[in-house]
Design a protein around this nucleic acid. Sequence first.
DNA 1: TTGAAAGCGCTAACAC
DNA 2: GTGTTAGCGCTTTCAA
Lengths: 337, 337
Amino acid sequence: MEKRQITLKDIARALSLSTSTVSRSLKDHPDISRETKDRVRKFADEHRYKPNALALGLRTNKNKTIGVIIPEIVHYFFSSVLSGMQEEAEKEDYSLIICQSNEDYNREIKVTRTLLSAHVCGVLASVSKTTTTFDHYQEILDNEIPLVFFDRICTGINTDRVVVDDYTGTFNAVNHLIQTGCKRIAFLGAPTHLTISNNRRMGYEDALRKNGIQVEPSLMPICDTILLAGEIVHRLLNLTDRPDAIFAINDEVAAYCIRKIKASGFRIPEDISVCGFSNSYISEATDPGLTTVDQHGFEVGTTAMRLLIDRLNGEEKKEGCVSKIIKTRLVVRESTK
Amino acid sequence: MEKRQITLKDIARALSLSTSTVSRSLKDHPDISRETKDRVRKFADEHRYKPNALALGLRTNKNKTIGVIIPEIVHYFFSSVLSGMQEEAEKEDYSLIICQSNEDYNREIKVTRTLLSAHVCGVLASVSKTTTTFDHYQEILDNEIPLVFFDRICTGINTDRVVVDDYTGTFNAVNHLIQTGCKRIAFLGAPTHLTISNNRRMGYEDALRKNGIQVEPSLMPICDTILLAGEIVHRLLNLTDRPDAIFAINDEVAAYCIRKIKASGFRIPEDISVCGFSNSYISEATDPGLTTVDQHGFEVGTTAMRLLIDRLNGEEKKEGCVSKIIKTRLVVRESTK
DNA sequence: TTGAAAGCGCTAACAC
DNA sequence: GTGTTAGCGCTTTCAA
């Protein structure tokens, strides 16, 4: 039971060798004799020698670590993404340093400095809702650290990126609502400065237009939290020309709608259909079960990590920036006809 | 736009000083003249000098990084815990390396090696469901790396720990069911080799006994996943002496029960009360709203991290191991009377 | 086939 | 008040 990690020097001393010989032995360098290699390997194993990642890192200025900047961990989608990144990183023995911006711009800046200082090999980032300038991301690139955006990308900076197909996902969902007989479809959206919100909005509008339905701004409030939903849903239900379907930008709001609609005496989906976005655990807990758009968070995570690692391995050196689009999938449950 | 992180040496050369003077200036050492300090600080700021964490780490064999071993990130409770850890760690400029065991023993072993090799300052861990031997955790301690268990602790190893008050949480919940008139209360539990399951089970049994109700093994199946729930809930509902309440070990199973019970034509809570455990997002999405036990995951995270950091700061050097218990809170919604 | 020495960026003990 | 030097653990010339 040793009290300290054993080092190359310890092995060298114990075996009357030099540290360089030990080093070479352990990485199976051809110059070293079979015999020496075996002695070293044996001793190392017995004493549970583990290379000091810090020392390794100092030489190369790289430490087999990847930084992740994520808005909020406590979120079905983001935690799924994280899980995917973990899995993919592990395959190549990368560790993950995870930083939460908490949707706060200043915090985002702070964590970029942390990651830079930690000398991570690369960074995966999803920008916070409150971020509007992007110098801190540019700084990562200026330090020649590969950067891949996922989900919430930053259009002003030219990097690899992985996005969910928000447009098509929403288009298909709204189209499904229309195909099943809905004509007045409300869209509960998120603030418009995020690309993802806009893409979803466009998917919604295009689905309406394609089916010859007029787009009505009054049916498209900003409503991405339960807090906001309270008043807004109430208003929508009391409209003389009440909507016969609600598309909500996330499952939480959709679940809230379901309860509110039922409490107001309407039936789902007969009177009003409801569709969410995420396919989180929530969508199986509502009554009726929630029709929703699966974002494949895990796949977003693995894909982003793979892209980054390929860059690090130099396999994508020459080509320009690549954008990967992860397909969504409409999961039809009982909240739509 | 520099292409490389600037180092102390660069600053020293540029200002015709020695690296040590620069080093001291930047940490406001009293020996250095005001003037020199200002010159150094100015140059450093202008060139965005950031200390190289790797080099720092190599000297002390510590890298201001804490390893977290967590069963599954995609879980309301665990992601809350993670979030709390993040927040607390950031206060003291620690970074987090997060490893997922995926409830797999072998993976758990692998990640401990990773953390050891990364030379983290400390480790926070929650053991996987499939783990039954604990040598790998002992090895962390043998390397004199402080270890704090959270939630799923390992009783065989003597360390600091933070647990949720599963016993009292369950006791109070079951007591609430009894107080509101329930007499035959089913307990859908988890496999018994986890301490937390046992504590919850004991809380359940004691609440029954205290109220003079007999404990019936037939009402206490192992049922911690929706998969298992299918058959089990069906059986319970068809018992001649049908339960009038169900306590489920997690919100997912509780939500499933709610749907199944309603589908079978029973009313909630009039015919059957349902109580969950976690107070995850799900509990607001069910209909009726789910009464559940809040585990305060965020607080578990901050507390565990605080405990660890205090150890690292040597503030808790002498004392034996401390156990912190995070109180639960019964959140009464509409699924109980 | 092996060893000696330098160097990655930083700090601290010891000069001056 | 500032500089010199050694050393953290490892790899990699270069020399033997």
